Simulated assay, not measured.
Amino acid sequence: MAAQSLESPTRRPDETNADVQLQEPSLADGPGLWRIARDTRVLDVNSPYSYALWCRDFAETSVVARDGGVPCGFVTGYVRPSSPDTFFVWQVAVDEAHRGQGLARRMLDRLAARLVPRGHRFMEATVTPGNTASAAMFESFARDHGGALVRGPLFGAEHFPEEGHEPEVLFRIGPLTAAG
């Protein structure tokens, strides 16, 4: 079977990704999610196996964006076992052709719309201090979903084996309302 291309038609900067479909991922999306994560060159890339497993076991707490049926973005997350009212956002990624158009935020909104009515009233994510774009996205998400945003240390640089890894700051947002 040939690999799917992640190339998309060229888009104008003012387009909004309105034609992109947001859905639960399927097992077939695993390779595309891995490629998108790898191609960001900023995410910690997990093994291809882990993305396939994620699409199988955590599809209900994740979102995939598809343009013409091809994955072009994703949010992976899970419900915290010790805090069943909290879902943790593991990774958010958008391929280069779809960045800067609000797609990451649309995916977060879709995830909240699915999970808040099920009793998951809090969202958590970690953001490195240098990632101002993600911080701004989570700040706007909190504001638009009626949740307070509390920041606090979670993992220090000493918790990572590689030299130079920034600390991870926990963003906890909630309680959330489904409608943005």
Score class of each variant (00 low, 15 high):
G147R: 00
P31S: 04
R80T: 15
G77P: 04
G130V: 00
A93V: 15
D95W: 01
R66C: 14
R106N: 08
M137C: 06
E15S: 13
P9A: 14
S82Q: 12
L108N: 06
M1Y: 08
D44P: 09
S62N: 02
T177N: 05
C55S: 13
F74A: 05
F87L: 12
S140C: 07
E163T: 14
D85S: 15
Y49H: 09
R172W: 15
S83T: 10
V63K: 00
E163K: 04
R38A: 08
T40Q: 02
T10K: 06
P9L: 13
F138L: 12
V92D: 00
A125W: 00
R118Q: 08
D29E: 08
S140G: 10
R66Y: 09
T10A: 06
D144S: 15
D19G: 13
L43T: 15
V127L: 02
W34Q: 06
F122Y: 06
R105D: 11
L154P: 08
M123K: 03
S140A: 13
V75A: 09
L170R: 05
R143W: 00
G156H: 11
I173D: 09
M123V: 11
E7I: 06
A97H: 05
E60L: 13
S50T: 09
V20C: 08
H98S: 08
P25Q: 01
S47R: 00
F58C: 10
S83V: 14
A135V: 06
I36D: 04
E158F: 07
H145N: 07
F141V: 10
E60M: 11
L27F: 13
G164K: 01
V116Y: 00
F122H: 12
T10Q: 09
D39P: 02
A93D: 01
A133F: 00
F160C: 04
A179M: 12
E168Y: 08
S5H: 03
G147Q: 05
L53C: 11
A93F: 05
G77F: 05
L103K: 11
W54V: 10
P31C: 01
G77Q: 00
L33Q: 13
E162S: 07
S83C: 10
M123P: 04
E162M: 05
F88Q: 12
H165P: 01
H165K: 14
G32W: 03
R56V: 07
S8Y: 02
L53Y: 11
V169L: 14
P129C: 02
Y78A: 08
M137W: 01
V116E: 00
Q101K: 14
